[in-house]
Design a protein around this nucleic acid. Sequence first.
DNA 1: TGCACATATATGTATAATCACATATAGGAG
DNA 2: CTCCTATATGTGATTATACATATATGTGCA
Lengths: 181, 181
Amino acid sequence: MSLKHALLGFLSFGPATGYELKHAFENSIQHFWSADLSQIYRTLESLREDGLVTMRIEHQKTKPPRHIYSLTESGHAELMRWLQEPSIELPTVRNPFLLKIFFGALIPKETILEHLRLFDEALRQRIAVYKQIEAYLPKRCREQGLHAHKPFLLATVRLGLTSLEVYRQWCHDFISELKRL
Amino acid sequence: MSLKHALLGFLSFGPATGYELKHAFENSIQHFWSADLSQIYRTLESLREDGLVTMRIEHQKTKPPRHIYSLTESGHAELMRWLQEPSIELPTVRNPFLLKIFFGALIPKETILEHLRLFDEALRQRIAVYKQIEAYLPKRCREQGLHAHKPFLLATVRLGLTSLEVYRQWCHDFISELKRL
DNA sequence: TGCACATATATGTATAATCACATATAGGAG
DNA sequence: CTCCTATATGTGATTATACATATATGTGCA
């Protein structure tokens, strides 16, 4: 699985806690990868057992102690190995909404239209989030010294945005088509 | 999970074996849902335990006996319930290729370009498959008496096609961008 | 005053999905 | 004559994911 590699990748930007990594996921790669916090914690521990990361605890006065993970040399080597290996695996997608549309002829047209409206609204919100991420990306790259990364991060975010917009356009077209039927 | 409901949905078109259901997945909803054959067999058995489907065995002379599953009344009811319930769950996507692009600044430009070329080729092939599915869909609907389903099946296939084409366009644009850098 | 939310960690359990293998036959390519 | 594909079924082991829950505190809001 690639969650390990996703975590190694983010840690190559600098040490971080599980909580921070979860936010890093949400603010950038949400479109093509996501993970539960509990899974991130477990995976970090397993990376530590494999010697790919190290962990140190930073005690704080008011908040729970932070477990800060850092990439080791062998973790970096593993990341490089994985990045350079050709990507054979095709993306897996599981979209329960589209499943409902697929079998849409079985239920009343009004219900389908309602589903489509809900989905459209969810897309609208997600697009707004992505536009924010896109807008702040140059600043974040400057601040974190990720200059060389900028074109890559931007490219993936833009693909996410475009995909969502295509979905939304499809939604509108299909609503019109259904209404005509 | 929705694999159960995907199977119930396909069985609403008529009785089928696990093997046939796998092919039904591949020939239509591959874009937004996929499942391993072994998982399909297990899920069918669990649907049977829940009384949502029944199974009868048809013996064949040369080949293994076919286990033919049919929707029961309560299976149909469950399918209808699920279809009409609003879809809150957002789609999960896991795209290891995009993960590699995201961290692309860490590896040589030539390697990334090679990854992009491979991905583009995979997209090209997948698009061809989808165009075939789209072309044969009207015929399949006629043959199986799924007239009312046609606009829904076509709509999801077209969304799949458009998404793939958007990905491919992005691929070409990003290759050009990288070459300029 | 009370409640929700953000910070930060994690375990425990159930379910889902993948991977490797096992079985058996038939037909076509090389 | 071997290898591959298609038909058709599964089991066993392992991994991955989701969901619920627990701990502890600060901040802001109504």
